[in-house]
Simulated assay, not measured.
Amino acid sequence: MVTTGHWIDSSWKLQKRVLSFVHIPPPRRGVEISDAIFKCLKEWGIENKIFTISVDNASNNDVAIRLLKDTFSMSKNLVCAGKLFHVRCCAHILNLMVQDGLSQIVDITDNIRESIEFVNRSDGRLLLFADIFKKVFPRFRDREPHYDCCPSEEDWVKVVKVCNILETFWATTQIISGSDYPTSNLFLQEIKRVKLVLDNGVNDEDDFIRAMVRKMKTKFDKHWGECNLLMAVAAILDPRQKMKAVEFYFPQLFPSNEAQENISKVTTVLFEFYDEYVAANDHDH
């Protein structure tokens, strides 16, 4: 398990360092993960300075974070009583959604990958492939008797449609995976982009695309059906967006009654966050 620390230094520069790289033997339950993280924080002397922890989406990670939250709560070191403590890795959620989408065309992608591997297995095939590059796979099949995984014309049409959808996921993953610049303030607008692609795909004329997108949308609703408080606060703290960020994006991400409820929830946490900050930095008391 690798643990990385992210912080802003005294010169207001975003910093990132690997804090530990340790082997956790099986069964790697939440309690072992929690112990390994806490040991690392103790060794660095930062156990009282942790704001939030971001992990992949796995049940053992959920348990680990719950245990850590309980530990930190005892010393009352968590901001907003731990409401902002656990953050699910956004890039991992996007990856899970993409895997769900690709599972719908696993036969096609297997054929395409096998076709590439087949051509690459010998220099003779590569030369032949280069010779007939236009309409290459069907013609290659005609000349190569052992090639039996040729994608059909319909397969290619499906792949192009899937690639158009996944392009948005790729772009969003690139943006929110950056570690040399702040990314949490970009979360709302990027997730809105993803939701728009999924909403459009649900009404696609192609049954195949509709089925694929429905599966991806289920994963989207599972992980982002609830308001992500930390990301919402980060968007508000971006001086270009402020409260307009949640007022604009929430009605597009949530049903109308939930949107207003979530805006109120975020506002409450923001004020709570501010009050704690003032109390911690009030040198007159």
Rank of each mutant, 00 (worst) to 15 (best):
L41K: 00
D9H: 12
R29H: 08
N60I: 10
E43C: 07
G30M: 02
S10H: 12
S10K: 15
I53Q: 00
R29F: 00
R17D: 11
L14F: 01
I53T: 00
L19A: 01
P27L: 03
Q15A: 08
S54D: 06
D56P: 02
R29V: 05
F38V: 14
P25D: 15
G30T: 04
D56C: 04
E43G: 11
F51T: 02
K16Y: 09
D56A: 07
H23I: 14
I50C: 08
V31Y: 15
S34T: 06
S10L: 15
G45A: 02
N57R: 07
I24Y: 01
N48I: 13
K13Q: 15
V55P: 03
K39R: 13
S34H: 08
V18I: 08
E47F: 09
K13C: 14
S20Y: 01
I24R: 00
L14I: 02
N60P: 03
K49W: 05
N60E: 00
S11F: 15
V22K: 13
I37Y: 03
G30H: 01
K42W: 14
N57F: 10
D35K: 12
I8R: 04
I8P: 07
F51P: 09
K42E: 09
D9F: 08
F38S: 13
P27R: 11
F38Q: 06
K13W: 14
E32Q: 14
I37H: 04
K42M: 12
G30S: 03
N57I: 09
K39M: 06
G30V: 04
S20V: 02
D56K: 02
K42A: 14
H23P: 06
K16T: 14
F38G: 13
H23D: 15
I53R: 03
K16I: 13
D35I: 12
N48P: 11
S59Q: 06
W44R: 07
G30F: 01
D9W: 04
V31R: 13
V55G: 05
L14R: 06
N60R: 00
K49C: 09
R29M: 14
F38P: 09
F51L: 11
V55S: 04
A58G: 11
I37L: 04
